[in-house]
Each structure stands twice: as structure tokens, then as C-alpha cells.
């Protein structure tokens, strides 16, 4: 193996690795949107007024959350097509969207729940007193108040997800991670392309993290103002 750091290799690997950037970014966005949607499903499943059902949903969420996303990806990619009856072959991209999307939807569902639980009891009672239908109650009273405060937390999960996306390289999604590994395999020097991957992640995720921190401060300030008015 090449034993010295070389800027020549670095510059040579840069365009090659960058080829995967679009896949990485689009996979992150698709996974995230899927997780945002599925998060709602979890939240409403937990609202079903049946103790046993609730218990099952809680533990299914716990199971998904506390087992490695890597194994979940392998399950979807390698094992799902082998299940008799319901198995279909999934493309690497679809497996990654499903796997990471389902994994993170359990976290996002919890965020929604915390947002909904933070709504004052009076709001629920008021919507009942004003004879709102269930749909209107959620659409016009609860969700508009519950979702905005959770936006910084949801933003954090976008960054977290971006950092989990390179896991998809293990099921052959050709993002920057896979590009770096295949450059390494072709040229027998892994350190430079992997450093590029690290730099790309840092360059994209650090400013977003700073931005979300600012958003959080702004949101908190708005909250306090509301509290003062109340």
C-alpha cells in the first residue's frame, strides 16, 4: 500500500469522490422526507386508545431504535427478497431510503409526540368547546402550535441522518463513501479519498449545525415572549 500522504493523489481523487455527492445528498433528503412522514404514523399509532396495541407499538419502536441501522439495511437489502410470499428485490437506493427512513422515523415520532404533549390542556378543551371536528382540531389548533417549536430538533435529525447515509455504501449505494472506497481499491491509496469524504461532511454539516443552533436560540426567544404574554 502507498505509505505516504500525497497531494497529487488528493487532487486526483477529489473529482472522483465528488461524483457521489449528488447521490449522498439526494439520499439524505429522500430518507428525511420519508422519516418525517412516517414519524406522523408512529405518533398517531401511539394515540390509539388501546393499551395492548399501545404497548406493542412502543416496543416495536424501541426495537427499531435500539438495533443497529447497518443490520436493518442488510435485512432489507439481502434478506427481504428471500422472504417467501412478500419478498421483493429492492434497489440499493430504495433499501437505504426504507432502512434509514424507518430507523429515524421512530426518533422523529418521539419529537412530534413531545411537541404535541407540550400543548396546553386548555387548547384541547377550547377546540372541543368550539365544536371543532377531529381533523380541524389537529389541523387548525394542535399541529400549528406543536410543530414549530420542534423545528430545531427536526433540523438536528437532518444533520444526524446526513451523517448516517454513508452506511448505505455497504449495500452498494454509490455515494461519496463508496466512491472513496472504490478509488482506494483502484489506486491502492485509501487515506486521501477518505480524508476528502471527511472534509465534505465537515464542510456541509458544521455550517448547518451552526445555523440550527441560531434557529434554536431564535425559537426559544419567541417561546419566552409568548410565555410572558400569557
Amino acid at each position: 500500500m502507498n505509505n505516504n500522504w500525497s497531494w497529487e493523489t488528493f487532487m486526483d481523487a477529489l473529482p472522483f469522490v465528488l461524483q457521489g455527492l449528488w447521490i449522498t445528498v439526494s439520499l439524505t433528503i429522500t430518507c428525511y422526507l420519508f422519516a418525517l412522514l412516517l414519524g406522523f404514523v408512529w405518533t398517531f399509532l401511539r394515540k390509539v386508545p388501546n393499551k395492548f396495541f399501545n404497548w406493542v407499538v412502543t416496543w416495536v419502536m424501541e426495537f427499531i431504535r435500539s438495533t443497529p441501522p447497518l443490520v436493518q439495511l442488510f435485512f432489507l437489502f439481502y434478506a427481504w427478497p428471500m422472504i417467501p410470499g412478500i419478498g421483493v428485490t429492492l434497489s440499493p437506493f430504495t433499501s437505504a431510503v426504507l432502512g434509514l427512513g424507518i430507523h429515524f422515523s421512530t426518533y422523529i415520532g418521539e419529537i412530534y409526540r413531545s411537541g404535541i404533549e407540550s400543548i396546553d390542556k386548555g387548547q384541547w378543551e377550547a377546540s372541543k368547546a368550539l365544536n371543532f371536528s377531529t381533523i380541524d382540531k389537529w389541523r387548525k389548533i394542535i399541529l400549528p402550535q406543536a410543530i414549530p417549536p420542534t423545528i430545531p430538533m427536526l433540523g438536528n435529525y437532518f444533520i444526524i441522518m446526513f451523517k448516517e447515509v454513508p452506511l448505505a455504501s455497504t449495500i452498494t449505494v454509490a455515494g461519496i463513501m463508496l466512491m472513496a472506497n472504490s478509488y482506494g481499491a483502484q489506486n491502492w491509496s485509501y487515506l486521501e479519498p477518505l480524508t476528502i469524504v471527511g472534509i465534505i461532511f465537515l464542510v456541509l454539516s458544521y455550517p448547518s449545525a451552526v445555523l440550527i443552533k441560531k434557529l434554536e436560540v431564535k425559537m426559544n426567544a419567541r417561546f419566552d415572549k409568548n410565555a410572558a404574554i400569557k
Partner: peptide, 11 residues
């Protein structure tokens, strides 16, 4: 915190 675990591991 800014890069992912899998990248750090391989790096």
C-alpha cells in the same frame, strides 16, 4: 461530531 462514525472508522 461533524463527520460520521463509519468515515472515522475507515479513516
Amino acid at each position: 461530531r461533524g463527520t460520521s462514525l463509519i468515515v472515522q472508522l475507515f479513516w
